[in-house]
Each structure stands twice: as C-alpha cells, then as structure tokens.
Design a protein around this nucleic acid. Structure first.
Lengths: 147, 147
DNA sequence: CTAGATGCTCTAGCGACCAGAGCTTCAAGA
DNA sequence: TCTTGAAGCTCTGGTCGCTAGAGCATCTAG
C-alpha cells in the first residue's frame, strides 16, 4: 500500500495524470488513508503500467479501456484484442506514410532554398503556392476565381 | 469579393476554421456586407492557402504566424524561415522514427499472438508486461516494490 | 514539534479545431 | 416581387489527453 507519488515514480505516469485516469474511470477508485490520501496496491500498479504501455504504443484511451476490460476476462477469445491492435497498427502505418510524404516535401523545399531574401525564398514560395509541390491544388491560379 | 463559403470551397479550409483563424489573429478581419457577412479578396485567399499548406506540412499555428509575418517582409533574409522549416523537418523525422518503433512493436505483438483466449493472448500480455518488449522498463518485477 | 514535501479538490488552459442553438441575410426560382 | 431554403452570423460548449495553478490539508523526517 503506497501513495500516489510512489505509484507515479514507479510507473512514470505523472500524479495529475493518475488522478485524471481515475476521474475518467480508467482506474478504479483506490482506498484512502484516514486523511483522505489515495493508497495503491501492486495490482493497481500493474494496471497503470498496462495503461502506460498502451499509451506509449499510441492507443487512444477508449481503446485502452476496452483492452483493460478484455484483460479482466481471461477466458474470452482474444479476437477483439487482436482487432484493436490491428486497427492501431494500420493507424500507425498510415501516419508514418503521411509523415514520410511531409518529410520529403520539407526536404525538397529546403534543398531548393538558396537562403537569400524572403522575396526569393523557396520555403515561403512553396508554402504560398501549393502547385510547386506534388499534391492536390488548393492554391490560387492567376485569373481564376473561386468556384 | 466572395463569401466565406466560397473561400472555404476554394481552399479546402472549413468555414468554422476560417472564423477561428480570424479570431486568433492569423487572418485579418475581412470587410463585411451591409448584412454583416464576411467578404474576402483574392489576397485573403492566397493567405489562407498559405496557412492551409503549412498546416498540411504539420507546422503549428504559431510557426505559421511567424512565417506569415516573414512573408510580409520580402526584403528580409529568409534565414529565419529556413530555420523554422529545418526545425519542422527535425520534428517530423523524430515523429517518424518514434512511430516506426511503435509499428515494429505492434507487429511483433501481433505476430506472436495465436488468437486463442485472453489468458494467453500475446497482445494483452505484452501490454501488461513492458519487459517483453525492448524498451525502458516501467513494469512490475515480481517481489520488487515501488521506489 | 515543526517545517517542508506531498497530498487533496477544483477550475481553467493547451492546440486546433468541430458541432449545435437560435437567429439573420442572401440568392435563385415562380 | 415574393418566397423559400441555403448559407451566414454569434456564442457556447465539446473533443483528446493531459497540465498547471490556487488554496488548502496531511504526512514524515529530523
């Protein structure tokens, strides 16, 4: 039985975050001391470590809530847990692809900038005119008004 | 001179977002019709396209604010603009690296799961015990209490 | 016994918007 | 010209996952 501060130190989850998890029902309400301070058990620490790890993996809290309730039912099929993880993997892969495209565009932008004045700055120019890079065009072609 | 709806359609930025940008001072207050509706110019459209593109590239609004004020001073050196872009590139690369690590771990997790019951589900197990993957350990080693 | 670290609750804020209520204005067709 | 329905207006509150601070109470080590 230990305090919220020790739980925080042990799991790497900040104190207000632990209270926040309790508030949104991700952690059960712990026992209290006579002076109303929270007291945690090893079991609670495990649960929080679980949450922490899932957060590190980018799972949203709602997915974690579901994973937790699954892990409380050891007899059930883990099909649902797999599905959640697969969804998360797809999500992560999509984000990577998107970020890689951004990285390439940023690199191109910087490669072409000769670092002179703003008037001829490639960075500003590319930002102002989407047509200069390889995407959907939301820029303003001369002479053409809005639809 | 056209309405907020047309501006939205032309730039792909949603109407409430345009009003939000105005509210936080990223876009100047436009003229109004007699009936108090916003009227935009081609110049405003260009400015919004600039913002939109920078957002697509993941720049935070504060960085965009700075880039906009730079682009309003064509005589100045573009050194600052470059710096912002370089910072953003580093940021993006860091995020990619982090996500790639997550992706690998998620894949490992899923590879090893035989899809039986929760009790033997690799997904749940790995989430519960950080020691099973290759990171800093915040899990609960048996017998060891919190610090 | 006391000082200072830690705990408590509550409220508000972050970024970057989105949604809805309840109203007004505009634009196109009859 | 009138009407109707889309689009506009302001304002408030919600999203996600926390984080920070105010203003107290309690615990713990010396």
């Amino acid at each position: 039985m230990f305090s919220i501060g020790r739980l925080s130190a042990a799991t790497g989850v900040k104190v207000p975050t632990i209270r926040y998890y309790e508030q949104i029902g991700l952690l059960p309400e712990p026992e209290r001391t006579g002076g109303n301070q929270r007291l945690y058990t090893r079991k609670m620490q495990e649960r929080l470590a679980f949450i922490r790890h899932a957060r590190d993996l980018g799972f949203p809290l709602e997915a974690i809530r579901e994973l937790l309730s699954l892990s409380d039912q050891p007899g059930e099929s883990c099909h649902t847990a797999d599905e959640i993880a697969i969804r998360q993997l797809a999500e992560v892969e999509a984000r990577i692809a998107r970020l890689a495209a951004l990285r390439d565009e940023l690199r191109r932008m910087l490669d072409h900038c000769a670092s002179h004045t703003i008037a001829e700055c490639r960075v500003i120019e590319v930002l102002g005119n989407h047509a200069l890079c390889a995407h959907d065009d939301h820029s303003v072609p001369k002479g053409a008004g809005p639809a």
